[in-house]
Nucleic acid binder design. Sequence first.
RNA 1: GGAGUGGUAGUUCAGUUGGUUAGAAUGCUGCCCUGUCACGGCAGAGGUCGCGGGUUCGAGUCCCGUCCACUCCGCCA
Length: 609
Amino acid sequence: MFRTHTCGQLRLENKNETVTLAGWVQTVRKFGSITFVDLRDRYGITQLLFAESLNASLEANPLGREYVLQVSGTVNERSNKNTNIPTGEIELAVSSFTILNKSAVPPFTIQDDTDGGDDLRMKYRYLDLRRNAVKKNLELRYAVGRSTRNYLHENNFMDIETPFLIKSTPEGARDFVVPSRMNAGQFYALPQSPQTFKQLLMVSGYDRYYQIVKCFRDEDLRADRQPEFTQIDCEMCFVEQEDILQTFEGLVKRIFKDVKGIEYTEKVERMTWENAMWTYGNDKPDIRFEIKLCNLKFPSHTFPDRKDISSLVSGTGFNVFDDAESVIAIAAPGCSEYTRKQTDELTEWVKRPQVGMKGLVFIKCNIDGTYKSSVDKFYNTERLKAIADAANAKAGDLILIVAGPEERTRKAASDLRMYMGTTLGLRKADDYKLLWVLDFPLFEYAEEENRWVARHHPFTSPKPDDIGNMINNNPVIENAAEYLKHPYANIKANAYDMVLNGNEIGGGSIRIYQKELQEKMFAALGMDAREQQHKFGFLLGAFEYGAPPHGGIAFGFDRLCSILGGSESIRDFIAFPKNNSGRDVMIDAPSTIDEKQFEELQIKLNLHS
RNA sequence: GGAGUGGUAGUUCAGUUGGUUAGAAUGCUGCCCUGUCACGGCAGAGGUCGCGGGUUCGAGUCCCGUCCACUCCGCCA
């Protein structure tokens, strides 16, 4: 045995015991003839005392940061205790030591507050992982995983592995492909998710399946996206939407309890997709704060059931509003005293290319009940008051109004809402609000191809009421300009997303399990019978043999961990993440391969440029 | 595919209007120090200013190109 205890273990009650520790040198503090060394392992830090008797030995074998050390000695009570660390009441008076391995000087400090930048930390990830801050994140990830497995196991879910080398499918994200040597000229794809396999497991009667599993999507990355990421993937049969919502609210609540010690007792809110878009301009709204959108003007075909109040802003000669497809306001609480500088900053913010607004209109609802707006020329007090009332603004609030094309304006209003929420400190880190978003549209219109694409995926069932509508109508879009009038535009999906503090943490649907409906769906997505057989013959075949009603959900494991860990970036919660360009800068992947490998695969490169 | 920001010592950064020898902190090395725990003190080493080209008497600084990183848009069923 290299050690009798860990570096986080010894306490005052171990006083006078003879022990052996092994670990890494965190710091060396030399005081002439005595030397203090902090020894670190996964469990903590223990201070070592090298007394005068070891001086010569230390000079012969000097210690540096990150040297691997084995030390034996006696546990002493410290004369000066350190209350900042759990082992701070004791120290190990070293009687003998062995340098198990030396270390080069690390390129950055291995501390909670490292001086290393992201790039460097990624390149030396094995050093970064020694840091307490990163270790805590991986521990949290492990805890989330354990909690998940415990809950699902207790609820009769069965962990079943599914293959990674599968078949490329047309819909959805770009596949990572893997050439097959034994089947020259043919390719596997890595799964974007185990979707079809888990459905087949339902057909096989494994009525509750789960897996914490890697998924692969070859798309451009973001701070919160990785080319390979992990999902908590689940499927159940003989269930309706309500059963799934209940089961997986339970899972998330359990994770809160196990990992964060939070009893989430309140009811999980629910909202239709239409209502989310109307009220928050976003299909994953952060409902921790009250600010809501006021739809002063909107296209009637987008929200056919909503009341038109555009007369409040139209017809005063203010062209920006008169000509806009949509005009949306939010009331920022307590901001009526904003200075010119502050409002200018907000204007600049919405004019950035990412937001893309031409400008921002302000109405200050002064404490004294008067109004002051940047468009006083066009709007009298009466109108301003009417707008303020519609926006639910109180005295002391600042109304921000954006105008322009519907989609962009709605997104800008939502972005602005989130920005103000953050700026005003309304998005509190320790506040968690769960939300189900329901009744998504089943289809989206793909302009380039003039056809429907599945918003969720092609296995999602329409709402029961919409099945007839789907079966009995021709999916072909005759008039591209009026695709919104096509019966398919209004079909709702039996799908649901779970949203936590403005993040989509999971999503799923009740699946199609009837062969005919599945064929209709594929046809709606532009697949003829031949292509359907080629791509999904196995699934259609399975549906001929007693497929049960089923549905499921998948949670983004990395993102869930990052939210629970209070971080923006999922990279902090992945042991070996990839950078923005999908590179692993530590092992330098992807890389070229040997000519021999190309020959075996019978593949030739044909690089552009 | 598009937009923006950045790249200067091992590391994190500063660097004025284009002007003498490019700085700070930290880390590193050496010496001193018996109670530190962000130890302290003294001394020292350490630079292809991402790369290429241009403007200029003179470029870390201005211009063009390029590479890399990050953030966002498109994309991510």
